[in-house]
Design a protein around this nucleic acid. Sequence first.
DNA 1: AGCCGTGACATTGTCCAACAATGAACCGCT
DNA 2: AGCGGTTCATTGTTGGACAATGTCACGGCT
Lengths: 246, 246
Amino acid sequence: MVELRDTQQSRVIGQKVLRPREQVEERIRVAILSGELKTGDLLPPEVELARQFNVSRTTVREALRSLTTQGLIYKVPGSRGGNFVQLIDHHSLGTAVIDSVHNLLTLGSIEFTEVAEVRQHLEVPAVRLAAANRSAEDLERLRDIVRRQKSASVDDPEVPKLDEQFHSLIAQASGNRVLASFVSALHHETEPVHYLDLSPDVGRATVRQHKAIVDAIAAQDPDAAEDAIVKHLTYLRKHLAAHVKR
Amino acid sequence: MVELRDTQQSRVIGQKVLRPREQVEERIRVAILSGELKTGDLLPPEVELARQFNVSRTTVREALRSLTTQGLIYKVPGSRGGNFVQLIDHHSLGTAVIDSVHNLLTLGSIEFTEVAEVRQHLEVPAVRLAAANRSAEDLERLRDIVRRQKSASVDDPEVPKLDEQFHSLIAQASGNRVLASFVSALHHETEPVHYLDLSPDVGRATVRQHKAIVDAIAAQDPDAAEDAIVKHLTYLRKHLAAHVKR
DNA sequence: AGCCGTGACATTGTCCAACAATGAACCGCT
DNA sequence: AGCGGTTCATTGTTGGACAATGTCACGGCT
């Protein structure tokens, strides 16, 4: 947090010396972020890149490895393989959040309840916006999910996936992609716990609550929607609290 | 989204073949996430790791490069250097969000308004919680910042930093670290724009609004705090909208 | 004694040249 | 048309060398 400021000489001539790997990485990064390289484009082979940048293939590979880890490119071995520019849309934000939150949770650097709390703070606006902005298609897809949830048995392996889809779809219907990414990421990290115990009672109650949410969205009634989702989340939290066994 | 399920043979014997680099990376990752390696610990030198895993140093280096990019370790060249386990706390989440949102914004994959909207949805609960949970020290620090903002001239290079600190501190005072990380990340990505034009009028209005927020937090009045922050954010948005020149 | 340069040293950073693994396209056989 | 092997471009891994970096200890200078 300490900030060093050059009080005497504010003119700067020298810049930080960048190592070869950093320069290569940066050049490729701006090529991607500037749109010079588009999604799906194939980068030149590593030997060719090494030639162009006049560095060794090893250095190029370290730069590419870093870019891969950042999710900007992906590598494909084999004859028609190579380094391709990765699709970068709002889902990237979701996975970035998932990864980071997951790490922090397993390290104990943050508490589960903090995540759940933020999730609720985001799901309420999400469902309100969904009620206001939902398309006919959104509604149909939500109804379809609830239908399938109703018919699924408790131990059906589809259950968690359906639940994830339900909440993600609502967030998507809000029309705000950042909000959608956050909600589905936080859902992903908070929900898994309650798959372990799932009595038929809880299953039925969940479906009933989901239906109430969808009805409010169908009626385009944000207040009712908020009410329904708060009830749902509160129910889940109470139910979860009864099963903290770890 | 397609899920392939083996309908005929549900017994799985073979697992995916992992490349050496992946195995090394994974082993080190779990060592860190399990707590076997703690913050600040020094990993064995690369040649030693190569010996232990029985792979080449190059392979070890690729694994370490990836872990570095993920923020799990950091590298220090030189005699007493090496690969150290990075501190991983909730700030990691903030920087992860900043990076991803920044990429998406420059690529045009998300809209500025979506980020700003989510920011507001998070700052409202943040300020309410801050009003409820704030410590005496939090309050003193907030007052100190407002004091300094009052005395700072419009073109003072400290101004943006103070603003960032102000909003981050409030989020921190909420007591929810996930919330704090999100708020400061989104603030970081949405605020820079309005540094460009900063008339003395706007500066004074901002400080006045900040003071109102702090007063509400001091009085531990969540409703008043919400009211104040909404007014503030609305003012900023209106002011920003008048200057969309890019 | 304290300060400053200087050189040794451990470690990461880069280079090079080769070979292994991968997987798509091609070709020929039936 | 389908099947199986071959070719080939590309990434993945290896081993070994040298360069760059930054800490430490030492020694000389003041």
